[in-house]
Design a binder for these strands. Sequence first.
DNA 1: AGTATTGTAACATTGCTGGTTACAGTGCTA
DNA 2: TAGCACTGTAACCAGCAATGTTACAATACT
Lengths: 143, 143
Amino acid sequence: MQISSRFSVAVHVLSLLALQQENDVLLTSERMAGSVNTNPVVIRRLLGQLKKAGLVEVRPAAGGTFLTRRPAAITLLEVYRAVEVVEAGQLFSVHDKPNPACLVGRNIQSALDDTLQRAQTALEQVLAGVTLQQVTTDIVAKA
Amino acid sequence: MQISSRFSVAVHVLSLLALQQENDVLLTSERMAGSVNTNPVVIRRLLGQLKKAGLVEVRPAAGGTFLTRRPAAITLLEVYRAVEVVEAGQLFSVHDKPNPACLVGRNIQSALDDTLQRAQTALEQVLAGVTLQQVTTDIVAKA
DNA sequence: AGTATTGTAACATTGCTGGTTACAGTGCTA
DNA sequence: TAGCACTGTAACCAGCAATGTTACAATACT
């Protein structure tokens, strides 16, 4: 089972916004959908989540969409959290009703919990160490 | 989306095997299912994967199931890999056909790939640092 | 031979993802 | 003020993976 592509799509969309140069060309959900290769509604749903997280400002009608912060001040962890790929602290799912009459069943959850938390945190710390700026710099460098 | 509970169930089952003391009492899939609180077939399917990975030996009929190694020599990463929660290197899914006519669409995948790999590896290294022995010791300590 | 158990196929159910249509709301601009 | 281009969101669909369940053949002890 994989982590939803919603995360990579979000980074894609934010990169488009970060690199948006022509201010006279409106970056609509339609246009973004064209770059991601998906449906505009998927993009609008995603922008709704990014807006809720305070990462973008969306002005209705022909207003356009903008980052609320410099790309260097947005980490991939914030994006990851914004799109709710995983509820906080719940990357691993654990079978929920082990038999309490059994020594192992009674204690497996707490015995595993610390390790699973640390594993998840390790992953998140890598994301926390990369900014949107670094991603766009990389994109431009490859061009 | 979450990582399948197959992983936590696998650790549960292996812990039962590791703590199996009474050699005259057979640890059947039925009994393991009772501790995990699931269906015996789910356990048998899981044991099939653990067997394929060389972690357990299952003797058909009334033969029983046993670890092939000491608990201290089994890491949680091996278990994680054995149950194929995630294909190698594929924890994150990435939208697969971005528009090659767009600067961002053309380069987003390779710009993200390194970071996603590092995040995944960070998670796996935590699992690699914990053995089944440590888990069972913890379970017993809590009793 | 009888019995308990494993191996596995087949199927149902559930829940999430991503795509799609539809339409009301919003705010420019003519 | 009417028309427009766009966003916000609800509703629905198909596809897929996870988990549970029944059923039954194969296996190897007693």
